[in-house]
Every structure is written in structure tokens, then in C-alpha cells.
Amino acid sequence: MYTVSQDCTFTKLRSDSTLRVLFSGSLRLKCKNACCQRWYFTFNGAECTGPLPIESIIYLDQGSPELNSTINIHRTSSVEGLCEGVKSGLVDVAVWVGTCADYPRGDASTGWNSVSRIIIEELPK
């Protein structure tokens, strides 16, 4: 399951420039058993491939089975990186939450009880 957490539109002026993006805010993952979630950026609906995807993961080994409880930690985190090859014009920039390969999905949330920011900067060559 993939869900968009935050998104905004940015006007990119040059085709040969690089976008620097940053998400800063509260990320949370909760589960009783081992789980993993991935927060990542998309540009006009596609992940960055040049030079690499822009992502961050949270993995939890397990909750506390003897207490029948779950780990539920909210942490201020950031996801940051550079993306090349995005054409000029309006760019839909979004932060998504998805699953990690080969790991069970947990209960993820973004931006609980805090300010979240997406910062987008166009870097000329």
C-alpha cells in the first residue's frame, strides 16, 4: 500500500538544473511484530532515478509481546536528496509512504502534532 503524505507544486525554471528536496517532520511507525516503511519523494508521479531515489526507512524489530504492546515512537526526521533530469515547468513534488521490500507493513503516519516542511531548491549547473 502506498499513500501520499505531503505534496506541493514547484515551478522549475531550467531543464538542465538539479532539484534539491528536503522533508522535515514527524515520522512514526507502529507494529507488534517486525515491520518496515519507506518514505520517498516523487516528481510528477515518478521516483528520481538520477542519481538515485530519495528515500528514508524506519524498521522496527518488534513490540513487546510479553506486554502485548506495540512500539509507537514519533520522531522528527528528514528525507533529503538531489534529483537530476526533471524537465522545466510545473513539477508536482510529493512525499509518499510505502513498504520496504520483503518486510511486513506497519502502521505509519507522517506529521503528527508538529510542523512538517517540504523545501525545494533549484540548483543551476
Results as ranks from 00 to 15, higher is better:
residue 9 T to F: 10
residue 10 F to S: 02
residue 12 K to N: 01
residue 12 K to R: 04
residue 13 L to A: 11
residue 14 R to S: 09
residue 17 S to L: 05
residue 18 T to P: 13
residue 20 R to S: 01
residue 20 R to Y: 12
residue 21 V to T: 02
residue 22 L to N: 12
residue 23 F to P: 02
residue 23 F to H: 08
residue 24 S to W: 08
residue 24 S to G: 11
residue 25 G to Y: 06
residue 26 S to F: 07
residue 27 L to T: 07
residue 28 R to L: 11
residue 28 R to C: 02
residue 29 L to T: 05
residue 31 C to D: 09
residue 31 C to K: 08
residue 31 C to P: 00
residue 33 N to Y: 04
residue 37 Q to E: 14
residue 37 Q to F: 07
residue 38 R to L: 10
residue 38 R to F: 00
residue 40 Y to E: 00
residue 41 F to Y: 02
residue 41 F to P: 00
residue 41 F to E: 06
residue 41 F to K: 04
residue 42 T to D: 06
residue 43 F to M: 09
residue 43 F to S: 05
residue 43 F to D: 00
residue 44 N to C: 08
residue 46 A to E: 10
residue 47 E to C: 07
residue 49 T to P: 00
residue 50 G to S: 15
residue 50 G to V: 12
residue 50 G to L: 15
residue 51 P to M: 05
residue 52 L to E: 08
residue 53 P to K: 06
residue 53 P to F: 06
residue 53 P to D: 01
residue 54 I to E: 04
residue 55 E to K: 14
residue 55 E to I: 08
residue 56 S to K: 13
residue 57 I to L: 13
residue 57 I to D: 07
residue 58 I to A: 07
residue 59 Y to N: 10
residue 59 Y to G: 00
residue 59 Y to P: 00
residue 60 L to V: 14
residue 60 L to M: 13
residue 61 D to V: 13
residue 62 Q to A: 12
residue 62 Q to L: 12
residue 63 G to Y: 06
residue 63 G to K: 10
residue 64 S to I: 14
residue 66 E to G: 08
residue 67 L to T: 00
residue 68 N to K: 15
residue 68 N to P: 02
residue 68 N to S: 08
residue 68 N to F: 05
residue 70 T to I: 07
residue 70 T to K: 14
residue 71 I to H: 12
residue 73 I to G: 04
residue 73 I to E: 07
residue 73 I to Q: 10
residue 74 H to Y: 07
residue 74 H to D: 05
residue 74 H to P: 00
residue 75 R to V: 04
residue 75 R to A: 09
residue 75 R to I: 01
residue 76 T to M: 11
residue 77 S to I: 01
residue 79 V to G: 01
residue 80 E to H: 11
residue 82 L to M: 04
residue 83 C to T: 02
residue 83 C to H: 03
residue 86 V to N: 02
residue 86 V to K: 10
residue 87 K to V: 05
residue 87 K to L: 09
residue 88 S to Y: 07
residue 89 G to Q: 01
residue 89 G to S: 00
residue 90 L to S: 07
residue 92 D to M: 09
residue 92 D to T: 10
residue 93 V to C: 03
residue 93 V to T: 01
residue 94 A to S: 12
residue 95 V to K: 04
residue 95 V to T: 05
residue 96 W to K: 14
residue 96 W to Y: 08
residue 96 W to D: 03
residue 97 V to I: 15
residue 97 V to N: 12
residue 98 G to M: 08
residue 100 C to N: 13
residue 100 C to D: 05
residue 101 A to L: 13
residue 101 A to Q: 14
residue 101 A to P: 10
residue 102 D to C: 09
residue 102 D to R: 15
residue 103 Y to H: 14
residue 103 Y to V: 08
residue 103 Y to R: 13
residue 104 P to W: 02
residue 104 P to L: 13
residue 107 D to R: 15
residue 107 D to P: 09
residue 107 D to E: 15
residue 109 S to Q: 13
residue 109 S to D: 13
residue 109 S to V: 04
residue 109 S to T: 15
residue 111 G to T: 07
residue 111 G to Q: 03
residue 111 G to Y: 05
